[in-house]
Design a protein around this nucleic acid. Structure first.
Lengths: 170, 170
DNA sequence: CGAGTCGAGTTCCTTTAAGAGACCTATCTC
DNA sequence: GAGATAGGTCTCTTAAAGGAACTCGACTCG
């Protein structure tokens, strides 16, 4: 199937997908986040083919998203944990979960809830403005090309083809 | 390759991936969000095989993420736009973009910036507590099984296998 | 002490989606 | 009436996904 690599797109979404965008990968990260850290447990939980799981775990370790720890050393027994890089991906994972909860929900409501351990309230991914601190709605967004813009694939907007509110800024 | 459908997982991440998790799909949504709304422009921008693009667009329209509008009618000329459901996915898309910006960045910085059209500040996806309104770090999260929890695939945690801070709550 | 089990993969085979590119059709444009 | 253009469809090849069996070195049960 020789899947196209997104790594040379001048687009951070593409680069992200190149690392964690493959089939099964976000679900593996979800399991590790929730504390399912061993090969066989992940395999049983997801029903993923063992070959695919082995390969995905290697890719994630190679990319620094997961770390592989031997336990009961001597033998090859491993646990997988999120690195700092992996933990930072949780925001995206929860954003996807929220969307599924809202638009594709189970009849009885969300299967899993994420809570703030401080106050016990429900946690949600939101768009927030770093200047004024306000929550931002999708129709209050404006996109501009950043300093790293290049003229390659995934840059239609940057090269001015967009009908959208694009302004060049560098 | 007969890809496993995630639709019957009791997990909103899996359900989300079932709709928008395929190779290319998030990039198509990114382009539509940025104002690249026509078949040929998306195809040229991404370099995606035409057959794959046609199929992905159909899936997205069928699932209510995109809407297909005829323009200059008489001929079949279409534009694709985000529906409310599609717009709501932007949060997840920006979360992925942020992660790519932070961990896989271009030498010169982010290729694209998302700004608050009100104040012009940079917009970012964050985890926020709906009770206390505070920003939540990944190590301040606690997960509990929600009302829609079922005992199928993708529920290792819910059925108590997790080493994590899981508490049953229904 | 030998048989069975378990974790963590690896190997092999079949099916099928992705990728590349040619082809099609209806309308404008010159 | 000869391109050009938009929006696809068709065909072919290759490689990834899915399924299942096999490996290999500890343990552990009787």
């Amino acid at each position: 199937m020789q899947r196209t690599s997104f790594s040379d797109f001048a687009c951070s979404v593409a680069k992200t997908l190149d690392v964690v965008g493959e089939w099964w990968t976000p679900l593996i990260l979800r399991d590790v986040f929730l504390g399912v850290t061993k090969f066989d447990l992940i395999q049983q939980d997801l029903g993923i083919p063992r070959k695919v799981l082995a390969e995905r775990l290697s890719v994630l370790v190679d990319n620094g998203v997961l770390s592989r720890h031997a336990y009961r050393d001597g033998r090859t027994r491993h646990e997988y944990h999120l690195t700092e890089k992996g933990n930072d991906f949780i925001t995206a994972l929860i954003a996807m979960m929220n969307w599924g909860d809202r638009w594709l929900s189970e009849p009885n409501g969300p299967p899993l809830q994420v809570l703030h351990s401080g106050c016990g309230g429900k946690v949600e991914a939101q768009l927030v403005c770093r200047s004024c601190g306000e929550r931002v709605a999708h129709n209050d967004l404006r996109t501009v090309s950043g300093p790293g813009a290049r003229d390659t694939k995934g840059t239609a907007v940057v090269s001015g083809k967009a009908s959208h509110s694009m302004i060049d800024v560098d």
